[in-house]
Simulated assay, not measured.
Amino acid sequence: MSEKTGTFLVTHADEGSAVFRDVSDGQVHTMASNPDVAEQDVLEATIRPQPPMEVAWEVVEVAERREIELVDTDLSPTTQAMEIAAEQEVGDVERVERAGEGEVHVLSVPPETTEDAAADVLDDEGTIERAARLGAVRVEVRREEDDGVLNVRYLPD
């Protein structure tokens, strides 16, 4: 095996080891030691398997390290999100590219579950993975409880 460069989400970290998941392909890599990372860190890094058995990995270089800020706002969804939601059925998700970088998701949920759905989005490791893949540093969740609309915004800054 050879070196691998990519974007990695730290899914586990303790004193002696760490686990990285490549956000592009989902492949999991167990580090032989903890290279001073914490769970939910996102790294742009190069890693390589350690000889002789090549089952554990080590970090060769970290080009960038960031955390993804998860924000549960009290803001209403954008006008665009509300227009998209008006055309959706409950359970639908629409993904829209933002001008510049990032992405916006509009989810239609039963109105009585809007608060729980927002909490689920913020607690889902997949949300952080998606943010890492999109180059976002902030995920903002807006909601309109009366209409059952979630507006998840993956923002570059």
Rank of each mutant, 00 (worst) to 15 (best):
136 A>M: 01
35 P>I: 09
80 Q>L: 10
62 V>A: 04
135 G>N: 11
79 T>I: 09
137 V>H: 08
118 A>Y: 03
37 V>R: 10
66 R>S: 02
101 E>H: 00
105 H>V: 13
28 V>H: 02
13 A>V: 07
127 T>N: 07
97 E>P: 15
111 P>K: 06
31 M>W: 01
21 R>N: 08
106 V>W: 10
7 T>M: 01
91 G>C: 15
11 T>G: 13
51 P>R: 05
17 S>I: 08
147 D>H: 07
78 T>Y: 07
112 E>L: 11
98 R>N: 12
96 V>T: 05
30 T>F: 08
77 P>R: 01
80 Q>N: 09
55 V>T: 13
95 R>W: 02
142 R>N: 06
87 E>L: 14
5 T>L: 05
6 G>M: 03
95 R>C: 05
106 V>T: 15
110 P>H: 09
3 E>L: 07
78 T>L: 11
157 D>T: 12
55 V>S: 13
133 R>Q: 13
152 V>M: 08
105 H>I: 10
90 V>A: 09
101 E>W: 00
6 G>C: 03
3 E>T: 08
10 V>I: 10
13 A>Q: 07
83 E>F: 09
33 S>I: 09
61 E>R: 14
87 E>K: 14
85 A>H: 07
56 A>Q: 14
9 L>K: 05
71 V>K: 10
59 V>H: 03
112 E>S: 14
89 E>D: 09
43 L>Y: 02
138 R>P: 01
155 L>M: 13
71 V>T: 05
113 T>G: 03
1 M>A: 10
127 T>D: 08
153 R>A: 08
31 M>L: 15
124 D>A: 12
45 A>I: 03
136 A>Y: 02
62 V>I: 15
11 T>W: 05
113 T>W: 04
47 I>N: 08
63 A>V: 07
37 V>L: 05
49 P>I: 02
94 E>I: 13
146 D>H: 04
19 V>D: 10
112 E>A: 13
97 E>T: 13
57 W>L: 06
149 V>P: 06
1 M>C: 11
10 V>Q: 03
55 V>R: 12
99 A>F: 00
45 A>R: 05
105 H>C: 12
98 R>D: 02
45 A>M: 03
116 D>N: 11
76 S>V: 12
155 L>P: 15
45 A>H: 01
93 V>H: 00
52 P>I: 03
123 D>H: 00
130 R>S: 12
55 V>Y: 03
83 E>D: 15
90 V>Y: 01
150 L>G: 06
56 A>T: 15
19 V>R: 04
12 H>N: 09
126 G>D: 04
9 L>N: 05
97 E>V: 07
46 T>W: 04
